[in-house]
Amino acid sequence: MTGLFTKLGLAAGLALVTATSGLAQDLPKNLRVVIGSTSTGGDTYQAASFVADAISKHFGINAKVDAVGPTEAFKAIARDRRGTTIMIHHDQSYLGHLYGVKGYEDIFATYKIGPTLTINPGNAYLVPKKSPYQSISDVLDAAAEGTRVRVAIQPGGVSEIGFSALKNAAKIKKPGSEKNLVPVNTGSQADKDQLLFDGQADVINGSVQSNEQYTRLPEDDQKAMRFIWLTAAQETLDQVNEAGLGGTSREALLQYATPKSSVTLDGEKDFTFDKDFFIIYNKDIDPALVEAIDAGLKEIYAEGAIEKSMKDAFFVPHFMPSKEATTYLEKKRDDYRKVIEAIRE
């Protein structure tokens, strides 16, 4: 009888160990994906939706995207070690810290960086169609000649990094001329557009997705705009669909990016900025879960369906497992830190 109980106990113990180890690698049945934006119309929600949808199907779980904004998203992952809440955000998550925005900590020290997912190559700078500035070089030349150029941005992140690069390039071109590039700090894309319509900004930060239709309006329309600079790297833009977006082909977009539109980083290389989306976890998340998501996403991207959906929506698929992603993003952070510090001196 004792032997029977011993065997039963061992079997139960073995089953428990097996089940527990299995659970450690399984994703929770309900996965909450919080994003660092409160908008459901923006690129963060769109990128997160692609990934959440693919994860749901692949793992047979229920993944839901909640647009809670950066502060609440960071709080949500900070209190969840079980991995039932993950965050998807972009370069803003470390740029906010570099710019000293309250509420942004050093994500590399405070959280665990997950895989990169996709790039939005659409970060752009625009002028009114009637503007005297035909290119980004014209803007830098004007600043060098002492003309005050007002640039509408949202401070403290992705919108500002291109502006910081412009100031850095102006400083390299003619030290002191960077003071002629004046930021007009504002909020949403609508606010930036409005400043251009009102003549209160000479250049605005925008995106291919939001502003492309405005570039197709006739010149006598008050709303008509023109791209002068895309911050994306050439190799990133090379990967977008040939048709580009709306009425603007990839070929046409490449005219506004490096090397044809040059904003120097150090006098030799050009500055580029690809807006990367990636996962952020609680610092103490079970490594097995991280591995499971890495492995699952690797299979999802290998299947190809997600890549097609992303490309159709003007995203560039960019999967990189967690370890590589951490190294890649840390290097990116270090590069941009140099740009920001260069213009602070």
Binding site: S39, T40, G41, G42, D43, Y45, Q46, S49, Q209, S210, N211, E212, Q213, Y214, R216, L217, D221, K223, L245, G246, D312, A313, F314
Partner: peptide, 15 residues
């Protein structure tokens, strides 16, 4: 609501 358009890859703008 604008998310419904972006999720379907439809550009919403002046055109």
């Amino acid at each position: 609501l604008i998310g419904a358009f972006t999720l379907q890859g439809i550009q919403v703008g002046p055109l």
